[in-house]
Design a protein around this nucleic acid. Structure first.
Lengths: 258, 258
DNA sequence: GCGATCAGCGGCACG
DNA sequence: CGTGCCGTTGATCGC
C-alpha cells in the first residue's frame, strides 16, 4: 500500500475520531519512563480516539509498545526514504526525575493495510468474583470464620483505610481480616502484618490477623506462622450472577517439623 | 458484512495461522477465574496465531476481555438468529478452586470488517532502564552509597534469592539493598523489611536495609523510619543506549516531629 | 492530584 | 511446575 495514501487514511481517521488500524513492517522506538528499541518486523498498530496507541506483534497477549489514553498522535511521511512514521507523545503521569515526556515512534517501511473504523461504545464491563465482592459477602457472614466475630462499623474512624475487614472477636480483641481472591503469597502476608501492626499501635493492644484465601504458597504459610497470624481457606464459587462463599476452613499451624 | 462469510474468513485465517481482526457489534461473556458480562456495543476482536484473543473497546488501553496464548478458538454461525459467535477456551494457569476452564464468548450481531493478515515477527524488545539494569550498575558502584561497602559475591549461598544486592559495610555488617526504578511506596518498604529479617535470622546478627529509589511516598518514609531502614534517593537517566546512575543522595530521618 | 491497592493482572526467571 | 517479583505495569477509588 502507498505510504502517502496511508498517511491520509490515518490523518483523516484521527480527525474523525475513529479507530485506526495499520499493519506493516516497522521499527519501534520508545523513550520515556524507560527506553526501548524493536527492530524491523510485521506488526499491527492500533490508535484509538482517546489517544491510546498499541503496537502488537504476531504473538503474545500484551502490546509490545504502547501509549495510554491522552497521547497526541503525529504522522510524517519521509518522501526521501519512502518511510511513514507515526508517533505518540504524552506527559508521564508518575513523576519520574527528569523524564516527564513519553514518546513512541513507529516507522513503517511498508504497509499492508490501513483503515479507520467508527467505533462507538461506552458500555461498562460487569465483573463478578472480585476481591471487593468477596470481602463484602464475608463481612456479612463473619460467623463463618468463628462465632462471636463482629465487624467494626465502617463509621468508626479506625475502620477507615485499606483494611478489608476490621472486626472484634468474642473476647473483644481486634481482628484484621485480609481477603484474597487467589492464592496468597508472601506479599499478602506482609500486607496483613503491616495492618496488624498499624492497628495494634493505634489501639495499643494485641491484634489478631486473619488471611482468607483459596490457598497459600508454602513460604507464605511459614511466614504467617512466624508472625502468629491465622489462615482460613476460602471456598467460593462465581457460578451465579454473583459470587457466593461456600465455606471457610481453618488451617492450623503445622507443628510437626522437627 | 455477511456473517457466514465472516466465519469463513476467520476459520481460514485460523487455519493459516494468521492475525485476525473482526470489527462489529457484539456482546461479550467471560467465565473462568472470575466472570464478566459486557452488553452490546462496537468492538474490535483480535485473534493471534498463538491463541491470544483480545476484545478492545473504542477507548482505554487495556483489552476489556481477553484470553492469553494457548486458547482454542471456535466459531459458530447461528443461522436462526443470524449471529456469529467466536469463543476462546483454555485452562487457567493459576489453580483456583473449582475453576480450571476459562471461556470467553463474543457474539456478533453485525460485522463491519473481518480480515486475516500474515504477520511474521519474532524480534525481541530491548528495554533500557529496568530495575535489573539499575541494580547491576549500582552493584558495581556501591561506593556511591558509602565508602567501604562491598558486594557479597553471587556465589555465596546467602546471596541467592530475590534480594537485589547483598553487601557488607566497612564494619562487616550485612546490608540488604533494594532498588526501585520508580517511587517507592509501602509495599517496597515491607519487601525490604522482609529481606532484612530473613538475612538477620539466617546470620543471627543485626542487618542494615537500604532502599534506593528516585522518591518515596510520605507513608513509606514513615514506615521506613519506624523500621530503622535507610533511604537513598537514586538519580539516574536513560539517555544513552543504556541507563546511567548519576548519583545517590542520603535522605536522613526526619527528627523534628514533636 | 497523590497514594494505596487490586487485577481474570501478564510476563519472566529461577528453583 | 510453582512462586516470587517486576512492569513504560494499568485501572480504580478514597483522601
Amino acid at each position: 500500500m502507498d505510504l502517502k495514501q496511508c498517511k491520509k487514511t490515518i490523518d483523516s481517521g484521527l480527525n474523525a475520531g475513529k479507530f485506526i488500524i495499520v499493519i506493516g513492517k516497522c521499527v519501534v522506538k520508545y523513550e520515556g519512563r524507560a527506553a526501548s528499541k524493536l527492530s524491523e518486523g510485521d506488526r499491527a498498530l492500533i490508535i484509538k480516539k482517546d489517544g491510546t496507541f498499541l503496537v502488537h506483534q504476531s504473538k503474545g497477549m500484551t502490546a509490545i509498545n504502547y501509549q495510554g489514553p491522552g497521547a497526541a498522535i503525529l504522522t510524517n511521511f519521509d518522501s526521501d526514504n519512502n518511510k511513514l512514521s507515526v508517533s505518540a507523545v504524552r506527559k508521564t503521569k508518575n513523576s519520574l526525575p527528569g523524564n516527564v515526556r513519553e514518546q513512541i515512534v513507529v516507522t513503517f517501511n511498508t504497509v499492508n493495510f490501513a483503515d479507520a473504523f467508527d467505533l462507538t461504545d461506552d458500555k461498562k464491563l460487569k465483573v463478578f468474583g472480585t476481591e471487593d465482592e468477596l470481602s463484602n459477602l464475608l463481612m456479612q457472614d463473619l460467623h463463618l470464620i468463628e462465632p462471636g466475630l463482629l465487624p467494626v462499623q465502617q463509621e468508626s474512624p479506625l475502620a477507615k483505610g485499606q483494611i478489608d475487614i476490621l472486626a472484634r472477636d468474642k473476647n473483644g480483641a481486634f481482628v484484621v481480616i485480609e481477603v484474597k481472591r487467589r492464592q496468597a503469597e508472601l506479599a499478602a502476608v506482609s500486607q496483613l502484618k503491616r495492618y496488624v501492626e498499624e492497628v495494634s499501635k493505634k489501639k495499643n493492644t494485641t491484634v489478631r490477623g486473619i488471611l482468607c484465601a483459596p490457598s497459600m504458597s508454602e513460604n507464605a504459610k511459614k511466614m504467617l506462622d512466624n508472625y502468629n497470624l491465622e489462615f482460613y481457606k476460602l471456598n467460593y464459587e462465581i457460578s451465579n450472577p454473583s459470587a457466593k462463599i461456600i465455606g471457610l476452613e481453618k488451617k492450623q499451624k503445622i507443628l510437626g517439623e522437627y
